[in-house]
């Protein structure tokens, strides 16, 4: 892998340069406590130290609501309306967010190729950044705390700038075209990088592995925990909408009042909503709130085989953004305890 250093004095310049490659989006503070990706109009607004965004990066590849095509009900023909997707730069993704995009790739590019996703994915330049965990983070238990692929550039914090890993051909092009702002990595930088990684590792609240969780979940569907916790649940869908790997959508045809034309739209759906499991004839695969509640736990803990990780990347969003205060991680730990499995360091 190719390594470079970006000195503190060149950070603003770096942001300016990468915005030459397309519209720049980055985490920004949107309220007292929350951050979200927003278009960068002023580089001083870019946030380098944040824990999580209220909307995951998936919004740039599967927009929360978007038009797919227009149709003509008389001729039965349809016209794509997406047009060309302009190149854009997504700055500031943490490791778990990058793994999450690779999980989405598995679904939207490999399993069921989706042209809307593919076009946006191709147009997006991904620049990752290192982070320090808070008490909601458990990417280490998911083995998604470090990425070796899935980004164009990845920035690791140093006391006086960033150590950059170049992760793609496009990443190489970007650094080649801007060599004047980068330096070679020194021995001090390497030591500092190692120190940062060590500090980060020690900050994780839990240790161990969640690899057996899927099966334990399957074996404990009768646990009283599901009744207690689903009782508190609002069915509001905040957990799935803020989850970087939740990928369920709904599709709707909107006829025009002229009775001749119409458009098809697509928008984020959630298994926490009753209509998610509703099929023709009125049958519902997940009739009760408890069914829907358990479904998310099972879905997120299933294996994504191409990466060998679970669909959950351990970002903590679903807990942090749950208005009912339901703690996903604590529930998982409890469920494991039910059959006597405890990871090191767990209380």
């Amino acid at each position: 892998m190719r390594y470079l250093k970006l000195g503190s004095r060149n950070i603003d310049e770096f942001l300016g340069r990468i915005s030459n490659y397309g519209d720049l989006y980055a985490p920004q503070k949107i309220s007292e406590k929350f951050y979200d990706y927003r278009k960068v109009e002023d580089i001083s607004q870019v946030e380098f130290n944040y824990n999580r965004t209220i909307t995951p990066a998936k919004k740039y590849f599967i927009p929360p609501k978007h038009e797919m095509f227009e149709f003509d009900m008389e001729t039965g023909e349809y016209t794509e309306t997406m047009g060309d997707v302009k190149p854009f730069v997504l700055f500031g993704l943490h490791a778990c967010s990058i793994v999450a995009l690779r999980i989405l790739d598995g679904v939207y590019l490999n399993e069921y190729p989706d042209k809307y996703y593919a076009a946006r994915r191709k147009a997006g330049i991904i620049i990752g950044i290192s982070c320090l965990p808070d008490e909601y983070c458990f990417c280490n238990l998911r083995r998604t705390d470090f990425v070796d692929i899935g980004f164009d550039l990845f920035l690791h914090e140093l006391p006086d700038g960033y150590l950059i890993r170049v992760g793609s051909e496009r990443g190489h092009e970007i650094v080649d075209e801007n060599m004047d702002i980068f330096e070679e990595v020194s021995n001090d930088d390497i030591e500092n990088f190692k120190k940062f990684e060590k500090k980060r590792h020690e900050m994780f609240k839990y240790e161990g592995s969640f690899d057996n969780l899927r099966y334990i979940l399957e074996l404990t569907e009768n646990s009283p925990l599901w009744d207690e916790e689903s009782e508190k649940c609002l069915g509001c869908g905040n957990c799935t909408m803020t989850c970087p790997t939740c990928r369920c959508y709904d599709v709707q045809d909107l006829p025009d009042i002229d009775g001749k034309h119409g458009k098809r739209i697509r928008f984020w759906d959630s298994c926490q909503f009753r209509s998610h499991g509703l099929v023709a004839g009125g049958h519902n695969f997940r009739e009760t709130k408890k069914d829907r509640f358990i479904n998310r736990y099972v879905c997120k803990n299933a294996y994504f085989y191409p990466l060998g990780t679970s669909y959950c990347v351990g970002c903590g969003n679903c807990t942090y953004f749950c208005p009912a205060g339901i703690d996903f991680l604590k529930n998982l730990i409890k469920i494991r305890d039910v059959v006597g499995e405890v990871a090191h360091g767990e209380q």
């Binding site: 949107i30 309220s31 007292e32 406590k33 929350f34 979200d36 209220i54 909307t55 919004k59 929360p64 609501k65 609002l234 069915g235 509001c236 869908g237 905040n238 909408m241 803020t242 709707q252 006829p255 928008f267 984020w268 959630s270 909503f273 009753r274 209509s275 953004f321 208005p323």
Partner: peptide
């Protein structure tokens, strides 16, 4: 044809719109 009624809450649209959640915050 007939209309499909929404059976999900305002939160869904709040999240899609990228608002801060003022209940939590």
């Amino acid at each position: 044809s007939w209309p499909e009624e929404k059976d999900y809450p305002v939160c869904a649209e709040c999240r899609r719109a990228g608002n801060p959640c003022i209940l939590i915050e």
